Amino acid sequence: MSGVTVWHDGNCPLCRREIALMRRLDRGGRITFVDATGPEVCPSDRAALLARFHAMEDGRMLSGAAAFAAMWRAIPLLRPIGLLARYRPVLRLLERAYSRFLIVRPRLQRWLLRREARA
């Protein structure tokens, strides 16, 4: 299995939680996590990297559900789901779900930020 690079929004409380979980599951260290809000050079437009989930697998830049599937394939526990996502109908379904999630993401982020502020 080759390595995967994942760009995430380090300022997003939802993203931080998800990436923390993925780091714990990535026991083999196959994924390089890059905070797209940090000083690192971005491979594409920083705003685009922050608007949608992005990953690079085998030299190909992926976004949305395809990027999640690449990350899952690098984690043995989630690999079966990532492999299943290689089938177009499954990937289309995951992308549709991800697109709907992006609509509610700002509300979830605000809710988590308020929750963190109270803690």
Rank of each mutant, 00 (worst) to 15 (best):
S2G: 14
L112F: 10
L94I: 07
Y98E: 04
C15Y: 01
A47W: 01
I75N: 06
I75H: 04
T32C: 07
D35T: 08
A20L: 08
I75T: 05
L50I: 10
M61K: 08
A51M: 10
A55I: 02
M71W: 01
R79T: 04
I81K: 05
R27Q: 12
M71D: 02
S99E: 15
I81Y: 08
L14I: 13
I31C: 03
F33D: 03
A117P: 00
A97V: 15
G38C: 03
E116Q: 14
V41L: 11
R27W: 12
A20K: 11
W7D: 03
R118P: 00
L84W: 13
A65S: 12
T37Q: 13
A85Y: 02
P89I: 11
E116A: 13
A97G: 14
R24Y: 08
A117Q: 11
A97P: 04
P76I: 11
A97W: 15
R52E: 09
L83H: 09
A65Y: 01
M61N: 13
M1A: 15
T5K: 08
L78E: 03
C42M: 15
Y98N: 08
D9K: 02
L108C: 07
E18A: 05
P43M: 09
V4T: 06
A119H: 13
T32F: 00
D26M: 09
L102V: 12
R24I: 09
R16H: 06
A69K: 00
E116T: 04
